[in-house]
Every structure is written in C-alpha cells, then in structure tokens.
C-alpha cells in the first residue's frame, strides 16, 4: 500500500500564514482560585468560560525523519460544537528581543468524522488527553488555565487521571507572521501575573 499523498511541508505563504505566540507556566491546585481571581480582574469583562476538551494527536510518518503531527480536539461539554483540527509548526525560540515562543499555526473547524478521515489518510493516533479548565480573553490575547488528564483506557474519556497537581497556564496570541510587537504586550501581561505564575517561553525540545 502506498502512503497517501499528503504534503509534508507546513503550510506557509498565502493568507493562512498565521503564527502563534506562546508563553507557558503552571499554577498549583491550591493557588488556582487566586489566579482565576486575578485573571478575572485583568481580562476582558466577560462571563467566566470553562471548557472540557478531548485532544487526540495524530502522526503521519513518511520518508522524512520527523513525522507530520496534527491535533484533533473536540469539546466534551458543548454538544454541537465543531471539531478542531490544528497544525503546529516547529517552535522557534528566537533571541532575547522576542519574549515569546513563536510557531506556525493552522486552525480549522471540521465535522465530527475527522478521526476517520485522518485514519483513512494514514494518520495514526500517537497520544490523547483530556483538558479541563478556564478560558479568558484580553483583546487578542487568550489565556487558558487547564488541567491535563491522562486517559487510562484508549478512547474512553470517562476513565481519566490527573497528570499532575498543577494547572497548565498558557498565554497565546495568533497573529499574522512578523507581528512581533504582540510579544511585548504578552510580556507585560505576564508580568502582572507574577509572582503567582511565571509565564515563560519554554522550549519543548529541551524537555524531550
């Protein structure tokens, strides 16, 4: 059987060359309340939003050394919401002048038969997890505070177990490439969360 004809190159150029600027940190369970309180004060005035998502990460291996990764996410608490397919490029740390991690990013809303489609294309599920937490917005900045749950039985999201005693905190902005100014805003915002949470640009390759 031949490998399906899938482009191995990240989507660049054109109108969808969007970048995600990212800062990450974590907060211990017992300090979550304080963080939520502070975020409600700092962020846009909106109803507190929570989410419960199931994310599956699919790999497509080709001739290249590194596999092509796609992330499929579905909401578990909001019925009727579309599935979310996301491509994330290699993270770039940049130099000191850039305060955030930057990576290529493509977001697509899809129908619910996304997993079948990916399987048919030859993708294989690598891992999956459940994310449960809170969502905040401030302008174009998005702040998510969520807990990651390990799935004990493949595909069964009813049987989960918390990965750690902390919540992951992510501050992100999706903007067209080259808009490095947003990273300044993000750094300023991150400063306001100290010392409760230290949001930093963390190179995931360092943690491999």
């Amino acid at each position: 059987m031949e490998a399906p004809p899938v482009t191995m190159m990240p989507v660049t150029g054109g109108t969808i060359n969007m970048m995600e600027y990212l800062l990450q940190g974590s907060v211990l369970d017992h300090s979550l309340e304080s963080l939520i309180h502070r975020l409600r004060g700092l962020c846009d005035n909106m109803e507190p939003e929570t989410f419960l998502d199931h994310e599956m990460v699919f790999l497509l291996k080709g001739q290249q050394a590194s596999p092509f990764v796609l992330r499929a996410r579905r909401s578990m608490d909001k019925t009727g919401a579309p599935w979310h397919l996301r491509y994330l490029g290699q993270p770039e740390m940049g130099d000191k002048n850039r305060h955030t991690l930057v990576r290529n990013c493509v977001d697509i809303a899809t129908s619910e038969n996304l997993t079948d489609f990916l399987m048919e294309m030859g993708f294989r599920m690598d891992h999956e997890f459940v994310a449960k937490g809170h969502l905040f917005r401030k302008g174009i900045m998005k702040i998510v505070v969520y807990k990651i749950f390990r799935i004990l039985i493949p595909g069964n999201t009813d049987s989960t177990e918390a990965l750690s005693l902390s919540y992951l905190v992510e501050l992100s902005v999706v903007a067209p490439a080259g808009q490095d100014m947003v990273s300044d805003d993000m750094r300023n915002f991150a400063e306001q969360l100290k010392p409760l949470v230290h949001l930093e640009k963390i190179d995931p390759k360092r943690l491999m």
Partner: peptide
Amino acid sequence: TFNPTDTNAL
C-alpha cells in the same frame, strides 16, 4: 503558587 517541575511536565 507554582512548581517549575510541574510546568515542565505539563
């Protein structure tokens, strides 16, 4: 309020 090890793990 936070634990860097947890951050890395997450």
